[in-house]
Design a protein around this nucleic acid. Structure first.
Length: 939
RNA sequence: GCUCGAAUGGUGGAAUGGUAGACACGAGGGACUUAAAAUCCCUUGACCAUAACCGGUUGUGCGGGUUCGAGUCCCGCUUCGAGCACCA
């Protein structure tokens, strides 16, 4: 009887839910394994076939680990805050919570059909108060912490205050926005507001005036990874630089730990490299330059201290605070005009147009090694935000300085023997130095490497500079001018940002009637009426009660998307705990995510923030491990495969692919759901759009063949494939097998249903091995034959290895081979087939569960012990060797499996056929490749 | 520009330095069937040879190298993809 996947899959979905098959509890008697997928943002479009790829892979691994005896945590939840719901709210007035809820329901319905082993009791949603309580809590902890460089850890801010009271800033080694200097007396004399401002310089969550990516189109600030080429990733609106007071997280304090941690985790080299790049550690030297005829001094950063004798000018970033100080009266109009022009240029324009621009400040700096005067210029090729915002320019050995010097006719002084700088700079860090000596320091004759070290030593000893490590990693901007995000648990006491008492958490998002920014330009929360904090009753009250004595205004910004996604993996460990983010026991049991699956597009966003957040929580003693994700796999994207029909110009006649070149045609996207194997369902096409109702077709071989192309899966290309449709036609098991069969997990590939029949046939074939025509079980208790055992143990070995290597596509092939072999052998042995059921269970859980029940298996197949591989069954009595001469195989010989190489060699050489091939030629070499080949080199 | 990654039949893709193209799709042929569906069997990189069989040559983007032996290792390119991009 046909395998009725619809009825059987439905049956098991119900039974699994009823029996709580996938419920997980901490069990110290068993080893744990934590599998996690990056949780999805529930968009209105629902799931397409690309989304479940990673979920299926991790589900297979989770089920496999469970069968191996691990207590497996495999949770799922929703990253529920996001811009689309908010924009939908602005357009329709529909509350984002309502749309989000609806979308989640739809996601859940789709996910349930695929048969995942998620423990839904542990579901989290970032937008629920019970969840964002802990997002707000972590923020408050960051506000109340500073980062101590000496102990490489976050510490309570109270310790820092104590330090200020006793020593001021002396002896301070902490992460800070800028270097401050004050005495204990000065600190103690400060008023509350001044102290608050000073502490902001050190807090891990702090408010700072920062240049932000302001997106007027979205009315909000965006993180760097939300901006690509000067436009917003969402919506594609232009983004400009604007200075704003924003909440920030001092991610930069953790730069070194974020970098070091990469060496301890099992992630792909490419994503680690991306993160290293993003962190951008650079070891160099900071040097002071005195300004001529002035008391002023400024600091530059360089990685090429060795080139100091080649400095012919200095450059300041236009935004640098030094610009007004160093500009002479004569140059002021020109400098002001330049700075103003630079400010007007958006990021986008600066990328598009990279002309050399700049202006002379009028001042000269004194090269501390040569005593020469060097002109100070201002140019936007120097960035204010990196290093000190000022550089020493060595045009001979830096291509940017070179371009600048050429453009403005400045001196270019080569320092490396034999280099030619007439056409371009010599940037390579190699060669022998020249022109580099003063009375105390002589670099001439040294290599670049030696001179860097020598200069560092000299500069440090002379007190004109110091060794410095810089990071490109910037602090994360943590404010968003949006409604649909976590509110900050912060109120403003006469301008001083103050944390809500911990017992007032969570601070719930207020209801508002309009989701747009207010007329006065405040964020949407400006519309909220109940949005003030009463410090006496400790309640949120109406704004009308604000008296700035006991009732104060609340913060109007909300947190960005990455706030809620930074520690969700901890919450899954203990999702219902209302006293803590995660209990000590749960945390110590689950520790960290053992296997994390998700797209590589989060390399510089979520995966950095989350690691940062976890490190902070570890300093706090909440998380037990330094790195939250021990192993990371980036599944590839599934692209769309679009189909085209070809309309003959100015007609309603469509011509099949093979004949289209005979006409003048326009390709038109056609819905892939009415195309099967690139053949168009003509009737469905006519019904698809009213304008095609009267369409005519020129067919080939009676069929209309469509063209195709690989494009992004999107509605506008009509290439979105909904997993529900596939499941309805083939069943979830086939979908699961096929998604794995498509190709290597980490590779991007187009969705193409052309091969899905093969997987479906496989499922049916397997079903038919167990059942007769009436659908009744027909298994025998007889002992399996040697061939049957060999076949199944080959499979056990292959599938076990493949799962461990995440090579699921080849294990699907292995299943097909095994089932072909066993059905060829007419195998109906229970001993063999029950192993097959256990092996297929992670891949195709529905059919496995049904067969497991039919064969009288105990409990659920997901708890059936993974079959043990026995090598003895694969052993052969004899092995066939190919006999080759100079690499060309001529004939074969059989030998006993345990025969040693020397004996084989002797036998082969004694053989008559061998002799006839050698025939008088000399034998140069004989190579015996175990179990494969004997190659005889003659000549 | 820099840093990674990739390139194998008509297609998706297999191959610890050891018989390249497993497995699957598609295509062609056949069996069963009144017919269709389903199922099963055979052929299927290219080229040459042959009545047929046996066979031969060539073949993993291009050019070199190491090796008895290279899709795999090394050097130099080409093309495509991804990330970073004035980071001093």
């Amino acid at each position: 009887m046909e395998y009725d996947f619809r009825q059987i899959e439905k049956k098991w979905h119900e039974l699994w839910a009823q029996r709580g098959t996938y419920k997980v509890v901490e069990d110290p008697s068993r080893p744990k394994y934590y599998v996690l997928n990056m949780f999805p943002y529930p968009s209105g479009a629902g799931l397409h076939v690309g989304h479940p790829l990673g979920y299926i892979a991790s589900d297979i691994y989770a089920r496999y680990k469970r069968q191996c005896g691990f207590n497996v945590l495999n949770p799922m939840g929703y990253d529920a805050y996001g811009l689309p719901a908010e924009q939908y709210a602005i357009q329709t007035g529909q509350h984002p919570a309502v749309t989000t809820e609806k979308n989640i329901a739809r996601y859940r319905e789709q996910l349930d059909k695929i048969g995942f082993s998620f423990d839904w009791d542990r579901e989290v949603r970032t937008c629920e108060p019970g969840y964002y309580h802990w997002t707000q809590w972590a923020f408050q902890k960051m506000f109340n912490s500073y980062y101590c460089n000496k102990c490489q850890s976050a510490q309570p801010i109270s310790q820092l205050i104590e330090h200020f009271e006793k020593q001021g800033t002396s002896g301070l080694d902490v992460a800070q926005s800028e270097e401050l200097s004050f005495s204990p007396a000065q600190w103690n004399a400060m008023d509350e507001k001044e102290k608050s401002d000073v502490l902001m310089n050190y807090r891990i969550a702090y408010q700072g005036e920062t240049m932000v990516n302001w997106c007027a189109g979205l009315g909000t600030v965006l993180a760097n990874d939300e901006v690509v080429e000067g436009v917003s990733v969402r919506g594609g609106f232009p983004v400009e630089q604007k200075k704003m007071r924003q909440w920030c997280l001092r991610v930069s304090a953790y730069a070194q730990r974020l970098l070091d941690g990469l060496d301890t985790i099992d992630w792909s080299e490419s994503i680690k490299e991306t993160q290293r790049n993003w962190i951008g550690r650079s070891e160099g030297t900071e040097m002071q330059f005195k300004v001529k005829d002035s008391d002023l001094e400024f600091t530059i950063f360089t990685t090429r201290a060795d080139t100091i004798f080649g400095v012919t000018f200095m450059v300041l970033a236009p935004e640098s605070e030094l610009v007004p100080q160093l500009t002479t009266a004569a140059q002021k109009p020109e400098v002001d005009a330049y700075v103003a022009a630079v400010k007007k240029r958006t990021e986008r324009e600066r990328i598009a147009d990279r002309r050399v621009t700049g202006v002379f400040s009028g001042s000269y700096a004194i090269n501390p090694l040569t005593g020469e005067d060097v002109p100070v210029w201002i140019s936007d090729y120097v960035l204010a935000g990196y290093g000190t915002g000022a550089i020493m320019a060595v045009p001979a050995h830096d291509s940017r300085d070179y371009a600048f010097a050429k453009h403005f006719g400045l001196e270019i002084r080569p320092l490396i023997e034999g280099c030619d700088v007439s056409e371009e700079s010599f940037d390579a860090k190699e060669g022998i130095m020249m022109n580099s000596a003063n009375s105390e320091l002589n670099l001439n004759g040294l290599t670049v490497k030696e001179s860097i070290a020598a200069t560092k030593r000299y500069v440090t000893a002379k007190g004109i500079g110091r060794v410095k490590v810089n990071y490109r990693l910037r602090d994360a901007i943590f404010s968003r001018q949006r409604y649909w995000g976590e509110p900050f648990p912060v109120y403003y006491r006469n301008g001083i940002p103050t944390m809500l008492p911990e017992e007032c958490l969570p601070l719930q998002l207020p209801e508002i009637k309009d989701y747009k920014p207010t007329e006065s330009g405040e964020p949407p929360l400006g519309h909220a009426t109940e949005w003030a904090f009463d410090t006496v009753s400790k309640k949120v009250v109406s704004k009308s009660l604000i008296d700035n004595v006991s009732v104060f205004p609340l913060e109007l910004n909300t947190m960005p998307g990455f706030a809620g996604s930074s520690a969700y993996y901890l919450r899954y460990m203990d999702p219902h705990n209302s006293n803590a983010l995660v209990s000590r026991e749960a945390d110590e049991y689950w520790k960290c995510v053992d296997l994390y699956l998700g797209g590589s597009e989060h390399a510089t966003g979520h995966l950095i923030y989350s690691r940062f957040w976890n490190k902070f929580l570890k300093d706090l003693g909440v998380s037990t491990v330094e790195e939250p994700f021990a192993k990371l796999i980036n599944q590839g994207m599934i692209q769309g495969r679009s189909n085209f029909v070809y309309r003959i110009k100015d007609t309603n006649t469509f011509v099949s692919l093979g004949l289209k070149d005979q006409y003048d045609t326009t390709p038109i996207h056609v819905d892939v759901n009415i195309v099967s194997g690139d053949v168009l369902d003509v009737e469905a096409f006519k019904a698809w759009r009213p304008e095609y109702e009267t369409a005519d077709f020129i067919l080939e071989d009676g069929k209309y063949v469509c063209g195709w192309a690989v494009e992004k899966m999107s509605k506008s290309m009509f290439n979105v494939v909904n997993p529900d449709v596939i499941i309805e036609k083939y069943g979830a098991d086939t979908l699961r097998m096929y998604e794995m069969f498509l190709g290597p997990l980490e590779q991007s590939k187009p969705w193409d249903t052309n091969g899905i029949d093969g997987c479906h046939r496989f499922i049916r074939k397997m079903w038919n091995m167990f059942t007769d025509r009436e659908g009744k079980l027909c298994l025998s208790d007889d002992a399996p034959s040697k061939d049957e055992l060999k076949s199944i143990h080959k499979l056990i070995k292959k599938v076990t290895e493949d799962i461990e290597n995440f090579s699921f596509n080849t294990s699907v092939s292995a299943f097909m081979i095994c089932v072909n072999e066993l059905s060829g052998l007419k195998c109906n042995k229970k001993a063999v087939l029950s192993d097959l059921v256990k092996l297929i269970a992670p891949f195709a859980p529905h059919i496995a569960e049904e067969l497991w029940e039919m064969t009288g298996g105990e409990g659920s197949v997901c708890d059936a012990a993974w079959p043990k591989f026995n090598e003895d069954y694969l052993k052969e009595d004899s092995v066939t060797y190919s006999i080759s001469f100079n690499g060309k195989t001529r004939f074969t010989m059989d030998f006993a499996a345990d025969m040693d190489a020397k004996a084989i060699e002797t036998d082969v050489l004694a053989n008559e056929k061998t002799q006839s091939y050698i025939e008088g030629k000399t034998i140069r070499k004989v190579i015996v490749v175990p179990r494969k080949i004997v190659n005889i080199v003659i000549g």
